[in-house]
Amino acid sequence: MKNFKSPLAVVLSAGLILMGTPGVSPAAMIGTERLAAQSQRADTEARLQNLLSREDVQQQLTAWGVDPVQAKSRAAAMSDEEIQRVAATLDQQPAGGDVFGLIGVVFVVLLILELVGVTNIFSRI
């Protein structure tokens, strides 16, 4: 072992082994974000199989007309857990905007159908 010929290297190596490496996160630590997500929902393991990246989200935002520089910083502002959660289904996520003037025959019929439908929402509240 050529490297260990230096007494300094031996001392430093031994010191590192004895002290461990505080400050450097061991690869095997499980992050709090993941722990919390597991507490919130039990299906995390399944969703984590579906790995998609921050770049995918950024590209999708750009494709939807967001300025590319903004898209990058906006994707960067999302947490790892959030990226995992939304990336695969970004196009199905509700995008709150508004349509105040939405009233029509179809709407009224749908509304009545859903109001008299099987679910009684108030019994669940």
């Binding site: 935002l61 494709a63 939807w64 007309g65 967001v66 999302m78 959030e82 959660r85 939304v86 970004l90 996520q93 509700p94 995008a95 709150g96 905007g97 508004d98």
Partner: peptide, 10 residues
């Protein structure tokens, strides 16, 4: 988000 006409929860 222009093409979605709104903002995402995330």
């Amino acid at each position: 988000i222009p093409a979605r006409g709104g903002s995402l929860q995330v």
